[in-house]
Design a protein around this nucleic acid. Sequence first.
DNA 1: ATAAAAAACTAATAATTGTTAGTTTTGCCC
DNA 2: GGGCAAAACTAACAATTATTAGTTTTTTAT
Lengths: 196, 196
Amino acid sequence: MAKILTQKNITKKEVIIQKAALLFKTKSYRSVSMRELADALGVEAPSLYNHILSKSELLQEICFKVGNKFTVQIEMIESSTAPTVSKIETIIRFHIKTMLENFDEVFVANHEWKHLQEPYLGDFLSIRRNYEKSLVSLIETGIQKNEIKKINPYVAVLTILSAVRGLEFWQRNKKNISQQVLEDDMVNHLLNGIVN
Amino acid sequence: MAKILTQKNITKKEVIIQKAALLFKTKSYRSVSMRELADALGVEAPSLYNHILSKSELLQEICFKVGNKFTVQIEMIESSTAPTVSKIETIIRFHIKTMLENFDEVFVANHEWKHLQEPYLGDFLSIRRNYEKSLVSLIETGIQKNEIKKINPYVAVLTILSAVRGLEFWQRNKKNISQQVLEDDMVNHLLNGIVN
DNA sequence: ATAAAAAACTAATAATTGTTAGTTTTGCCC
DNA sequence: GGGCAAAACTAACAATTATTAGTTTTTTAT
């Protein structure tokens, strides 16, 4: 029927991936059929295959785009000379910003990665493990420098990563609270606690 | 072929639900076929229907069992007279314990609820909303009593709930850290922060 | 305007899905 | 050990799935 609409500098493949991310987020990877995706793009299902190789390629593109984004960021932070606590704060703010700006893709990478096939599944998990290791090292350094309390660094990383990840539930309340308040309060909560 | 094994006081339906929770957790609701579930129970797929009504009933049972568990707990805490900070600590510890003891079902309730059909979907979301409201009220009370810093209570609830939810990533590291350390460190992190 | 390339279409594929109907086997009670 | 209910089985269903082959339309470049 119609044609896939493209804006400047956006390939049709990217348009498909974006729409796929939106649908995978709301309905899950397995629940979205290629017909449904094509429908959302105003096209018949087989037409998609002029631009993509397979359904699973869509998931791969989404997951690794997100994975690379965070990897690049952590490498930048690691090579900086700021105090450890500032580094942690930077990471938390980066997570929050990225989560809110690339909501669909981050959500899908967080939730649907398990449907990746090998070797992509292994690669993705490896990227994630390395990211976590970097964070653990960061916390350990902070403890050594006495910037951070003596706690189990794995638990701290788990707590921080999970908390920022929870922003995926944010949409509902968007109206009430500004992103700035959200960011500041969460950073403060995770760094300084809530008890007076 | 074989028969569904039952222990004392456990109906065959419950055995099916448990196994379903395990499979739904690892492969997602949509990815687990009734044949696969039956296989895992040593039975043919149609035999399941002597005990259950449908695949979706399995998901309903799992989600509402978990939902009710948390609702009962929050109501108990609300009617107690302990200081607000203690109440919050109790809730965090309850989340951690429940997460670790009923891992499969909590995981499925957290991840697969979106595949519930109406009216179950609406009911489940309503239960969850009410739970969150109770927590927000608790934080607000704490702020009024000056037990807790002046922060946005929604952000605090989001941070706490997301952090404990993140325990689903815990399995991997189970070996290294005891549940007690995990619980104490996370409670401490969420209440008092990590910065010296 | 026309030829070539890109991208849409229709039709069809084999596999898998949840579930039903009907039948046979199993386990228990007297 | 005969009868009855519970629960297994086999066979089959209609629907849906991702994907392919082959064809026609649309866009692009000259």
